[in-house]
Each structure stands twice: as C-alpha cells, then as structure tokens.
Simulated assay, not measured.
Amino acid sequence: MALDQLKAFLVEMQKDEGLKQRVLAASTADDVARIAFALGFEFSGDELLRFSGKKVGRVTVSKQEHPGEYH
C-alpha cells in the first residue's frame, strides 16, 4: 500500500540527513516521489500531497505554495 510506503520513507528520511536535504531541495512532490522510488519506496507525488498536514515521527508533510505557481 502506498500509504505504508510513504510512512516508511518518512521514517527513513528522519534517520538520513543527506536524504532529508535532497527531499528539502526537491521542487515538486513528484520529485520527492522519484527520490523515494530510487530507494525502493513506491508512492506518487499526488499521494504525498494528499498526506499534507499529517505527521510521522518528527516529520510533518506540508505543501509549499510558491508565488506565481499555477494549478
């Protein structure tokens, strides 16, 4: 299940400072999903966005709004 994969990735991110920095530098939720996929975790950028506002351990997922962003 993608939600389990997402939660496992967030736990892993808390243990790995380099991974955390890569995720924080990512531009989009899809970029984060690609980073996760390369490490064996499977979830989509949309699933990550739907998880916004929820917390796993010390990580709270939040959608970043950028000025000039179009939807």
Results as ranks from 00 to 15, higher is better:
residue 28 T to M: 05
residue 70 Y to P: 01
residue 61 V to D: 01
residue 71 H to V: 11
residue 2 A to W: 07
residue 34 R to G: 04
residue 31 D to F: 06
residue 68 G to I: 06
residue 51 F to D: 00
residue 25 A to P: 12
residue 15 K to E: 15
residue 58 R to E: 14
residue 27 S to Q: 15
residue 67 P to K: 15
residue 70 Y to M: 11
residue 18 G to Y: 07
residue 54 K to A: 09
residue 59 V to F: 09
residue 17 E to W: 07
residue 25 A to T: 12
residue 48 L to K: 03
residue 43 F to T: 01
residue 34 R to Q: 01
residue 69 E to L: 08
residue 39 L to H: 05
residue 50 R to C: 02
residue 23 V to W: 10
residue 4 D to A: 12
residue 52 S to Y: 11
residue 35 I to H: 03
residue 53 G to E: 12
residue 49 L to Q: 03
residue 2 A to C: 05
residue 62 S to I: 09
residue 36 A to S: 08
residue 32 V to G: 08
residue 45 G to N: 02
residue 15 K to L: 09
residue 1 M to G: 12
residue 46 D to M: 04
residue 25 A to C: 07
residue 46 D to V: 07
residue 7 K to E: 12
residue 29 A to S: 03
residue 35 I to K: 04
residue 55 K to T: 15
residue 59 V to E: 02
residue 29 A to H: 04
residue 68 G to C: 04
residue 51 F to L: 01
residue 20 K to L: 12
residue 37 F to I: 05
residue 39 L to Y: 08
residue 43 F to K: 02
residue 36 A to C: 08
residue 50 R to W: 00
residue 14 Q to W: 03
residue 68 G to R: 00
residue 17 E to T: 11
residue 50 R to Y: 07
residue 37 F to T: 04
residue 35 I to Q: 02
residue 34 R to F: 10
residue 8 A to F: 06
residue 10 L to F: 06
residue 23 V to G: 12
residue 6 L to T: 06
residue 49 L to H: 03
residue 30 D to H: 12
residue 28 T to V: 09
residue 26 A to S: 11
residue 39 L to M: 10
residue 51 F to Q: 00
residue 21 Q to F: 00
residue 71 H to N: 08
residue 55 K to F: 10
residue 55 K to Q: 15
residue 63 K to V: 14
residue 4 D to F: 15
residue 57 G to N: 10
residue 70 Y to Q: 07
residue 69 E to A: 11
residue 18 G to A: 10
residue 60 T to S: 07
residue 43 F to Y: 05
residue 38 A to M: 13
residue 24 L to R: 07
residue 61 V to G: 06
residue 69 E to Y: 04
residue 53 G to M: 12
residue 30 D to A: 07
residue 62 S to Y: 10
residue 19 L to R: 04
residue 4 D to S: 13
residue 71 H to A: 14
residue 36 A to N: 01
residue 9 F to C: 01
residue 38 A to L: 13
residue 64 Q to C: 04
residue 50 R to D: 06
residue 37 F to A: 05
residue 34 R to A: 12
residue 19 L to G: 00
residue 41 F to V: 09
residue 60 T to V: 14
residue 2 A to K: 05
residue 67 P to V: 11
residue 61 V to L: 11
residue 34 R to T: 05
residue 18 G to P: 00
residue 12 E to W: 06
residue 14 Q to R: 07
residue 44 S to L: 14
residue 59 V to M: 06
residue 22 R to A: 05
residue 60 T to N: 10
residue 23 V to Y: 14
residue 32 V to E: 02
residue 62 S to Q: 09
residue 21 Q to S: 03
residue 25 A to Q: 14
residue 25 A to H: 09
residue 61 V to I: 14
residue 7 K to W: 07
residue 61 V to E: 09
residue 67 P to Q: 15
residue 4 D to Q: 10
residue 59 V to Q: 01
residue 17 E to V: 11
residue 29 A to R: 02
residue 40 G to Q: 06
residue 36 A to W: 05
residue 16 D to A: 07
residue 26 A to E: 06
residue 35 I to D: 04
residue 8 A to V: 02
residue 18 G to M: 11
residue 1 M to E: 15
residue 9 F to R: 03
residue 40 G to R: 14
residue 50 R to M: 10
